[in-house]
Amino acid sequence: MPIIHVDHLCKDYQVHQKEPGLAGSLRSFVRRKYQIVPAVKDVSFEIAQGEIVGFLGPNGAGKTTTLKVLSGLLYPTSGRASVLGFTPHERKAEFLKSITMVMGQKQQLAWDMTPGDSFLVNQAIYDVPDQDFRQRVGELTDMLELQPVLKKPVRKLSLGERMKCELAGALLHGPKILFLDEPTIGLDVNMQQAVRTFVADYNRRTGAAVILTSHYMADVEALAERVLVIDGGRLAFDGNLSALVAERAPNKVLKLQLAQPVSPERLAVFAPVRMIEGLTAELLAPRGNVAEIAARILNDVPVADIAIEDMPIEEVLGRLFQRKPMAEAAK
């Protein structure tokens, strides 16, 4: 049962243009030029209860814009968005109480107070009954291991601790939808892992839908079965991650561990060589006959070990996005 409907959504921004240099500044001082920059163009999709969906795309592709439309921060230029039956930009209190948004780059906890203080404020703002509040704080504290930091002022926390507190603070009212915008940005690998595990757990426990954008492919890989690829404001792909790889990466990677040095020319007979370095080599084999190629290599070349892998997603997407000039994807 879908809880988010997005129907031919478009969103344009008004950006004022500045020419470089002093003369340019003077000109734009006298007459300011505005440019309409389309950020999201005709995007449609639906998201169901309990889904975890990852938005993928290069910088400025329109991921965050879509997220902001869904959370009611932006008015769509045209098209429709409906979330839990509400029109987001009307910003009804009831709607706002059933969603939450965590922005990796924007802080919502009061800087000079402890996370506990901010939690109390959130409790009051979101009208959370005492019992629910205590229970959720307890749960979240356990899941995120917050016990040691709850009583420290936020400004004294590390980036990772702060993000965990942000997450906890954003979930106290038991939202049905989580919008996570770059939730792991700037965190170290362990902390990224912790946040991922938490989000997955939370989704499983509460059945809340999670919509996240991230630069880190690992986030999306670990969490989202379904991805929406947004590129240049358009929806370029909607489906599960492995289908994306299958569709966009016709080749598999054959990783060879050679028993003795082999010249690149000799390997190129079987399939295009992706890289060769000492005794390690990688070939690109078309999906369909990868097994046959592997068999031939094993016959003809001294191979110590062989492995068949998918192309790393980063690379698949990198190639996907390269085709389009970045200029048109300005925010």
Binding site: D112, M113, S118, L120, V121, A124, I125, D127
Partner: peptide, 22 residues
């Protein structure tokens, strides 16, 4: 119009912040 409780909570928070910036 937010609840009285919400305003009181915000007030307490901001009072706390201001105290630090004496």
């Amino acid at each position: 119009m937010p609840s009285f409780r919400a305003i009181r909570a915000l007030l307490a928070l901001n009072y706390g912040i201001s105290l630090q910036y004496r």
